[in-house]
Nucleic acid binder design. Structure first.
Lengths: 216, 216
DNA sequence: CCGAACTTACTGATCACTCGTTAAGTTGAC
DNA sequence: GTCAACTTAACGAGTGATCAGTAAGTTCGG
């Protein structure tokens, strides 16, 4: 995602000037704001977070936020939008790299999802918890992407059932259970703990295949 | 749960006076407040809900809330506490009624959980979503109960693995996946839909047994 | 059966404070 | 001097909480 909303209204991309020298915002700019918002939204929730808290964490005045975003709501939406696009892109990529065997495809999607939930744990939780605080416009704009992601799972499971690779009687509930199990990881996983990401992926791949009632 | 906190500070139980005549709150009293809070907290979240909104929904003045609860936080805590106790009690009850076979016990716990998530769908979601908005005192007080409930699952699955009834390699992840799948029900289930509670229980019992890798 | 004393279950007004937002001014690199 | 990237100061609306007041009901001595 790289739309006009990445920039202040009417601004031109300052990532690199005409001379090739990057222009670095003195106060950390958009990244400082976004990073702080990510932390504070995750800690206290959208309504529990004030833009003063966010600005303080970013080391800027509260007005700096209004230079980069037109509103608090826009800040939340940008955060969720970026990470939702990222997730969808990763899933899409992962599925391009495997063949058409439903079990392989399910493995790929579980891997992409678990990796995302771990690597972007904070945004993950914001996306699921603060979704309801998006104003209708923003929510509707992202809803299509959400449904597409959900459809990726559904297609794989339905195909597997049709082919006899999966024997679960209720594909929709299998899908919801697998997704719920993967999503929950972001709530309990501690990156500093003993369990590494590859092991985690393997565990949840197995669980997903069992939920889908895979017979090898 | 029926503690002194059910009543205004310093008050004596008025459910039945010395003469046996009950005192009926004119405006609906505690129940009106609690019911409204349940709805508004569920709709907008703790910080998104104002006590004025809650009072308005209850058909009372804002001050009426302070007659029954010392604070907004206490109102949330009371709501979560009651439903958490209710859940734990139902689980406990369900497990008393079955023998010691791990599969039977898992079935009983899934049933109790799914029924709870459907029947008390709203409180369910408040409990999971607004947990973090409990102040430390309240959270710590309820944390023990939460851990006890989690232990119910762990004991059953560990026992099943020890006996060879369940063959999942990672009992903790199996537990978390089963719980996540059951909990998610409260987020998507529509009571007015076609899928009835008994069918739902059966579906999720099967999923849980597959996650635990039950061999019959 | 009366009525003073007391309790219950509220209301309305108001407090100090925080909220998101905005306008106007400042800084400093080019 | 220009313009991106800020800051300071303020606005009005809304927040949780407090408190004095009160209508309605209950209790109990006479």
């Amino acid at each position: 995602m790289s739309t006009a909303s990445d920039l202040p209204p009417g601004a031109v991309d300052t990532g690199a000037g005409p001379s090739g020298t990057p222009v670095i915002p003195r106060g950390g700019g958009r990244d400082a704001i976004t990073g702080a918002a990510r932390e504070i939204f995750a800690e206290r929730g959208y309504h529990g977070a004030s833009i003063r808290d966010i600005a303080k964490r970013a080391g800027l005045s509260l007005s700096a936020m209004y230079y980069w975003h037109p509103s608090k709501q826009h800040l939340l939406a940008a955060l969720i939008e970026e990470s939702t696009y990222d997730y969808f892109h990763r899933c899409d990529q992962a599925l391009r790299e495997v063949g058409d065997d439903p079990a392989d495809r399910l493995r790929a999607l579980v891997r992409a999802t678990v990796e995302y939930r771990v690597r972007r744990r904070v945004e993950s939780n914001i996306g699921t918890q603060e979704w309801r605080n998006l104003e209708p416009d923003n929510r509707e704009r992202l809803d299509g992407l959400r449904r597409s992601a959900s459809q990726l799972w559904a297609d794989i499971i339905n195909d597997g059932v049709a082919r006899g690779t999966f024997r679960c009687a209720h594909p929709d509930d299998a899908r919801r259970s697998i997704v719920a199990a993967c999503n929950a990881i972001a709530q309990w996983y501690e990156p500093s703990g003993e369990l590494g990401l590859p092991d985690l992926v393997e565990r949840y791949t197995e669980i997903a295949l069992r939920i889908a009632d895979h017979r090898s």
